[in-house]
Every structure is written in structure tokens, then in C-alpha cells.
Design a protein around this nucleic acid. Sequence first.
DNA 1: CTGTTAGCGCATTCAC
DNA 2: GTGAATGCGCTAACAG
Lengths: 335, 335
Amino acid sequence: MAIRLTDVADEAGVSLATASRVLNGSARKPAEEISEKVRAAAQKLGYFPNAQAQALARASTKLIGLVVHDIADPYFSSIARGVQKGIQANGIQLLLTSTGGEADREALAVRAFMSHRTDAIILSGSRRFSEDHELAELLESYQTNGGQVAMIGQPFPATGGIQLDNEGAASELAGELLKAGHRRFVVLAGNPDYMTAKHRADGFTGKLKRSGVPVETALYGAFSREGGYLAMGDYLDQAESQETANQICVFCVSDVMALGAIRAIRERGLRIPEDVAIAGFDDIPTLGDVTPSISTARLPLEEIGRLAGEMVVAHSNSKLVVMTGTPVLRESTER
Amino acid sequence: MAIRLTDVADEAGVSLATASRVLNGSARKPAEEISEKVRAAAQKLGYFPNAQAQALARASTKLIGLVVHDIADPYFSSIARGVQKGIQANGIQLLLTSTGGEADREALAVRAFMSHRTDAIILSGSRRFSEDHELAELLESYQTNGGQVAMIGQPFPATGGIQLDNEGAASELAGELLKAGHRRFVVLAGNPDYMTAKHRADGFTGKLKRSGVPVETALYGAFSREGGYLAMGDYLDQAESQETANQICVFCVSDVMALGAIRAIRERGLRIPEDVAIAGFDDIPTLGDVTPSISTARLPLEEIGRLAGEMVVAHSNSKLVVMTGTPVLRESTER
DNA sequence: CTGTTAGCGCATTCAC
DNA sequence: GTGAATGCGCTAACAG
């Protein structure tokens, strides 16, 4: 690339130091007259500061890293949108990586961010019950060196961020469904190795058990649209022969899974909510475009992302903010 | 931050240059014995190469920038997903910015990417008929300095990338709709300052005119869900009193607009497709979750993103790849 | 095959 | 208030 600060300084007939001072504003303020000359020279030459060189000389890159499972998933893209809003005012740039939810790729992403010396790293939707050792170590060393870390979901013990009260919200949702008159429940529990999935399933199941209406069946599978589709399909195929799928209420641990499940339900000619009621979790924007409208536990995803972004730029991410979800009953669970 | 290459070299008892050679692999290969020592030292000390310093010393940052209007819009998040896939194999990181489609913020984003010396910039969904001067200049200077540029949609004359045959696909879609028996058409044309919107509307309108079935009404508005919702609502409110909204087929220049329009239609108690048929453009993933299924012109979004990513890493982005869309008729336009 | 040295572009002490 | 010099961490000639 071309045109350095030196060139600008030469063009303006001042020293490198002076040029640097006017173009970035340090403690010392050069005279207005000279400043004007420098700015004019920079403009004329089309000068762009080299962020790498600045990062090296300063101690900050003005870069933050965001890792998500899948940027095409509305859950994560909503969060990403929020994060952008939370950081954009400060001229900070976003480094984004999708990991597919695989532990090793997540660690790889964090490694890359560490190499790029991002000022902060935001992890969304990551925690598992297993295999998190490497990631935890990485983050610890990152923090030791002054890096900010914020997690969205279930933070590591030593990290701050946004904790989502999945269990509580799922429990509340179960309560509302009970009130609405549902008595036969099936849970599409997703992958229980993800804390998020397990907490949601447990919250829902626990509430029902305490109310004396235990869940009839819990189904496991991928924490995705496809996972919901397959799990629901298998269940229905089996239940059909036993005439047991009637008047059932299905709770999916994420909206995306619910969307998949709905497809499986429709393909078998069953009606929602007449034959089977269904509820999800998250309230992703897509839900606004689906008919019938889907019941869910609402999480303010964009807000959560924005908050996480603001926390890391303000270096106030050592604390833990708890976000709670609110049940929203819509057409898909009407009786 | 801590621990530099020098530290590793000292620990291993070799020179800086040697350490650099084994840890990054240059033309010259140090002896296996010494290499092992260096790797061990790096491992023990927890060394992470400083990407900024590397970028400064090399001439490449291994960073590419992607600018989108809104990452939460499934159109763009699908493209983003593709771009990631197209570049991930090469250890390249993605810098992402959402601009809200505003020209000045787009220029700002490109400026930021230029400062960060991204090896390439991918612009998706940007071109307007007005105000593109600044952006064009910026990109030209970027390319002059060796930066790769790929645009998705309608490339600038001097840039390469992926050209979407919006006009052709819209025309084909119109033809299919005609074949299906539709005779009364309304177009939700979005914002005609966006080339994408105009080309799609023109392609559709032109085909109908040539077929002797001219479009009855063209409505303008924002190129968004909200825009579709408002434009459709206004039309229906007006048409209702004149009993003219019957058996109409509405073409929206994007699926996202169609989703908004559908909401407006449903709120007024009209049925799809019995009362009003509707078609969109893009085939965003969300469409798979909507009932009735929506007719559209399919664009392989993820594939397009992947291709753009691969083009810029291969430096083969001077050429222009034309992607054509294919009409997909589904339930929303059944007669 | 390995070590020494000179920048990469900029911020920032330190003198003037 | 301004300029000269040093170093940020690393790569790439250049010697040895």
C-alpha cells in the first residue's frame, strides 16, 4: 500500500511527530495554522492511517471478536446486530467467526482473535458440559494479558457477561401452558451437552413435575432446525400407530428447532394447534412471519448483543448481568 | 500483551530469525531437531504471533472486509455465511460491518477497512443510482494500492464480482406467473434508487408489458419488511373500497418485503392465494418455514457469498461472474 | 542451515 | 509548540 504519515509530513513541511499529533490528537495540540496544513496535505494525498502500525505502537487494536455458531441462524444474527450497535459509536470493528458449534473450531477462532490482539472477545452460545477445558485456558490467558471477555449464555466461572436465565424462563413458560389447559407434554430437548439446551429442558420438565403433570417424553437430537425436524418426525411416526400423538403440547428448546418440528408435523397432515400444540424458545424475528404465530419464551436478543458490546468497550464486563425471558403465548398453543 | 517471538527464541536458545522460520514456515527449513525445540518453547510459553506485527512486516493482513446492509436480514446473513465458507480454509478473518444501507455509512465502513488494510473488500447489495461517487473513488484508490474488491449485485464498471441477473430472473418469474393463469398484477417495487430494486421491478414489468398484460399498479417504499408491510397495507385499504383487490397477484422485489406484505394481507382478513396471490425474490431460508409456501425467484445466496469469498482470496475477482435466478412457483401463487 | 540487521508505519518519550 | 530518536513484534534480505 502507499502513502504514509511520513509522506504527509513531508508534503506539509512538518515533522512526522507533528503530523501524528494533528491527525490523531494527542495531549499536545499543534498550532491551528500548522494543523490546517497537515490536514490539507493528508486530504490531498489521500492518507489513510495504517491500523496495524497504530495497533503496534499503541496497545490497542480497536478490534473486537465475536464468535457464533452460525451467522445464518436468526438467533445469532440478531445478537450480532446488537453487538454491532453496541460498539459502532467507538469506531471499533467487528471480527466475526462462525464455528458450527464445534469445540475445536471455537478454540481455533479464539486463537485467531488472540493473534489479532482483539481488545475483547464475545462468545455467544458456547458452553458445553464437556470439552471446554481448552477454551477456558485460552480465555484465562487472554484475560491475564488484558483482554476483555464477555460470554452470552452461561459464562465461565472466571468470566463475566450476560447470563440467560434459561431455566427460569422455561419454567414460567411451562406454568403458562399449564394454565392454558395443556396436560400432555413432549419436550424436544436438543443436545443435552449444551448447557443452554439442558437448562431449558430441565426448567420446563421440573416445573411440570412439581405441578404433578410430568412430561411424557423427552427427545434428543441436534440443536438445530434439522434436529427438530427429525426428532419430531420420529416421534410422530411412532406415536401415530399408537394413537398417542393427540392433544399433545410440544416444547422445543429453541425456536429454530420448533420451526423444524412444525414442518414435520405439517408433512404428516396434522394441524397446529388443533392436533398438536407447539412452543419454542427465544422469539427470533422469523417468528413474526409464521402462521400460526408461535408461542415462545422471549429473549431480547438484539438488546442482549448490544449490552454485551457496550460492556466490553466500557471494560465493565467482569460483572454478570442476568437476563430473564418472558413467556409469550400465541396461536400455536391455543386450546 | 506478553510473550513475543524473541522470548521464544531465547527460551529455545536460537535466533529470532530461526524461531520465525519454524513457527511460520518460510522457504528455508530449519533442522527438525532445532524446530522441535522452538515449538516446545512456544508451547511452553504460550506464544501467539502478533498479527499486527506480522501484517506490518509482510504486506498482507489476512483480513477481508464484508459490508452488508443488515446482518440480521436473512438475505445478508446467508451471504455472510457463504463468504465465511469461501475464505475459512485460508486462515483469513472476516471483518463485518452493517450499514443500514446508508451511503455515508457505507463509505465509512470502506474507509475503516482501508485503514485496517484488509486484503479484500466484498460489498453486497450496495449500488444506487445516486450518491455512489465517493464510494467509487474510495474503491478505486483501494484497488490502485493492491486491494481486491468484489461486489455482489451490480458491480461498478471498474470492479469485478458477482453480477445478479435480477432483470432476467424477474422476467422469467413473470412469465411463469402468466402461464399459471394470473392476469392482474401489482408490483411492490421498493426503493427505485437501489439498482437491485429497479432492475427486478423493470424485468417483471417489462415482460408483462410485452405479453400484453401490463402491471396495474407499482408501489414504492422502503426495501424492507416494514416497507412491504406499509405499501401493501396502503394499497389494500384503498383498493378495498373499490373492490379491486380481488384475484390480484402481487410481486414483491424481495422476499423480506413479501413477508411484510403477507402480514398486511392477513391482518385484513384476506386469504393467500385465494384472494391475493403473492411472490417474492431471493428465496431466503426463512421461506421454508412459512405457510403457505411462497413463490419466488431463487438466488443461491450462500453459494454466491462463497464464490465471492473464493474469488477474492484467489485474486480472480477482476472478472464478472453472472448468477442467474430461477423462478420457483409454490402455494402462494396457486390458482 | 543459522544468525545479524534493517525496516514495515506509527506513537511517544525526550530534547530543543 | 515542534522535531529527532527509539521501539512496538515480526519478516526478509543479507552475511556467515
